[in-house]
Nucleic acid binder design. Structure first.
Length: 559
RNA sequence: UGGGGUAUCGCCAAGUUGGUAAGGCAACGGGUUUUGAUCCCGUCAUUCCCAGGUUCGAGUCCUGGUACCCCAUCCA
């Protein structure tokens, strides 16, 4: 990228500006990115990551990485590792060690006990169905549990037994005593702890009771000194519970630890991108049902998929700046993401020539066996990137799409009888078409003009410039061309489900490609612009003898 | 249906005490160009969900509508 655009302001930064002006939090800003390790990070998470980390960065604060690991049923160490890798790859550095909500299980437990002591929580020994029934619905107020007024000592004893494993899953829960008639469903005596006899990826078998998100999050934030707790809009209705928890526990927490700040939760709209999905559940479905090769399939909007596709951290961060942060639900055009990578790769990717569907050209007036090394810059605007040598020989390969036996003037490529320039080389003229037994064009005979290297022919204009490789010197490779994963702009809205609109042509493998010899041995991850085609990167499946490239994004086309 | 939100150009999104609509993406013209790329220049909301009202003046204030999103997991 040539110039790193200033991060635009947004309502959250304005809130922070105001807080700072009022002298809150001693001028400190501490944020956190709190993923649940139950899936891979996707582009939507990137927005949250960039928001949290860039705010910390620009206000001289810090940002924590904290795993919200309160549900051992769906979480795993595999995800914990992948998430750290992705955040780091995006270029952000979390403050201190990685944190886990499970680090606070002892504290959380004590907080729960305290709430019981304060008469603000109780153990409910009803079955889940009964609790759900009593919760009521949007129009019907809930009903108090018959155990709501259970004596404190009894709840304390019961909670201790829950912890000892004396109850089976579903036999008892700890509930907050708030208001069963609240219009906010989240306040109808929400469950604080439930029994799960599962091994936890961090705490092993130490616990068989696990705290719920709503109870865990505010306490974790407070303990870490988070000043601004940023989350997505769907948690808005949970904010009263977040505040309730901290209000009730304020004294207790202050007596145990010195709580440096009273965190506040602010919500922003999550990122939606058209022609894809950003829901861990749906992405997991694509993986599990083999619609893609894995979480890092280059078609996936996951961070790991984008990385394999050839996206750069800079491009993703740029994109996040471009979309902004607001409270209105929105769907961002995939074109904006693509624009962000093109912008970055245009400036940084060395150029190369690759022929996707080869068509042989024989230059009849080019001496047999003669090879000429042509110098070609690696970047048209940046000489500092240097240059490479491109061998020119009697037989060259061009793309089938770059030749037509006849065409109108709009066609700026090779036409029988007309001239075109071979990029970095000579002007050639197509003189004859040779066909095979099936009538298909097998080669095109040409002549070249030796006076046209580095200068234009006099008195005539060539139709255009096309890319090419030497038939003898080029190296065979595979190029994987990608299109959008879904055929509908809003796969989420499909009644038949997202799987019904997966694009059957989202992956097109071109296996007869030829790339110029300078790219032989290119290592996985390296990125190039194949001139007139697009940006490509070497896939992890690539081997020295068999290069494999992924299309990151095509060049902009206007004609 | 009760509660909580949001509505500014095709898509994002600024607009902070009311003063006469930023920017990006896309699109469309034109120029440069040995990438139909890049780059450059230009066009692109008399109008801010709708309807009233207050005001010299409203996207910004008031009233009343409409549309869409979120919440009824012992998920996060």
């Amino acid at each position: 990228m040539t110039d790193r655009a200033e991060t635009p302001t947004n309502f959250i930064r304005q809130i922070i500006d105001r807080d700072l002006a009022e002298g809150k939090h001693d001028g400190k800003v501490v944020t956190r990115f709190p993923p649940e390790p139950n899936g891979y990070l996707h582009i939507g998470h990137a927005k949250s990551i960039c928001l949290n980390f860039s705010i910390a960065e620009s206000y001289g604060g810090v940002c924590h990485l904290r795993f919200d690991d309160t549900n051992p049923e769906t979480e795993s160490e595999e995800y914990v590792e992948a998430i750290q890798r992705d955040v780091a790859w995006l270029g952000w550095q979390w403050h201190g060690e990685v944190r886990y909500a499970s680090d606070y299980f002892d504290l959380l437990h004590d907080c729960a006990v305290e709430l019981v002591r304060l008469g603000l929580a109780y153990v409910d020994t009803q079955r889940p169905e009964e609790i759900a029934r009593q919760r009521g619905d949007f129009t019907t107020p809930g009903q108090d549990s018959p155990f709501r007024e259970r004596p404190v000592e009894e709840s304390l004893a019961l909670f201790a037994r829950m912890r000892q494993g004396e109850f089976e899953e579903g036999e008892a829960v700890l509930r907050a005593k708030i208001d069963m008639r609240s219009p906010n469903m989240n306040m109808r005596d929400p469950i604080l702890y439930r029994i799960r006899k599962k091994t936890h990826h961090q705490t092993g078998d130490k616990w068989c009771i696990y705290p719920m998100y709503d109870f865990t999050h505010p306490i974790s934030d407070a303990v870490e000194g988070i000043t601004h707790s940023l989350c997505t809009l769907e948690f808005e209705a949970h904010r009263p519970l977040y505040d309730w928890t901290l209000d009730k526990l304020e004294g207790f927490l202050a007596s145990r630890d010195s709580i440096p700040a009273r965190p506040r939760q602010y919500e922003f709209a999550r990122l939606n991108l058209n022609y894809t999905v950003t829901s861990k559940r749906k992405l997991k479905q694509l993986v599990d049902e083999k619609y893609v090769s894995g979480w890092n399939d280059p078609r996936m909007p996951t961070i790991s998929g984008l990385r394999r596709r050839g996206y750069t951290p800079a491009a993703i961060r740029r994109f996040c700046d471009m979309v902004g942060v607001a409270r209105a639900d929105s769907v961002v055009d995939m074109g904006m993401l693509e624009s962000a990578v093109r912008d970055d790769l245009n400036a940084t990717a060395p150029r190369a020539m690759c022929v996707l569907k080869p068509l042989k050209l024989v230059i009849e007036n080019w001496p047999e066996g003669h090879v000429e090394m042509l110098s070609a810059p690696l970047h048209p605007q940046n000489e500092e990137m240097g240059s490479r040598e491109v061998p020119m020989a009697r037989e060259v390969l061009i793309d089938q799409a770059d030749f037509q036996e006849q065409a109108n003037k709009k066609f700026k490529r090779l036409v029988l009888g007309d001239e075109v320039r071979l990029r970095y080389g000579y002007v050639i003229r197509a003189t004859e078409v040779i066909r095979d037994a099936a009538g298909e064009i097998s080669e095109v005979r040409c002549t070249y003009d030796p006076e046209t290297l580095g200068r234009n022919p006099e008195g005539r204009k060539v139709r255009g410039v096309i890319h090419w490789v030497s038939a003898e010197h080029s190296v065979p490779c595979e190029v994987r061309m990608y299109e959008r994963l879904f055929t509908e702009a809003s796969p989420d809205r499909m009644e038949e489900g997202v799987l019904s609109v997966v694009n059957p042509e989202s992956l097109q493998v071109m296996s007869e490609c030829r790339v110029e010899p300078a790219l032989a041995g290119a290592s996985p991850g390296s990125r190039f612009q194949f001139e007139r085609e697009g940006y490509f990167c070497v896939d992890e499946d690539s081997e020295p003898e068999r290069l494999v490239f992924n299309l990151t994004v095509g060049l902009r086309e206007s004609f």
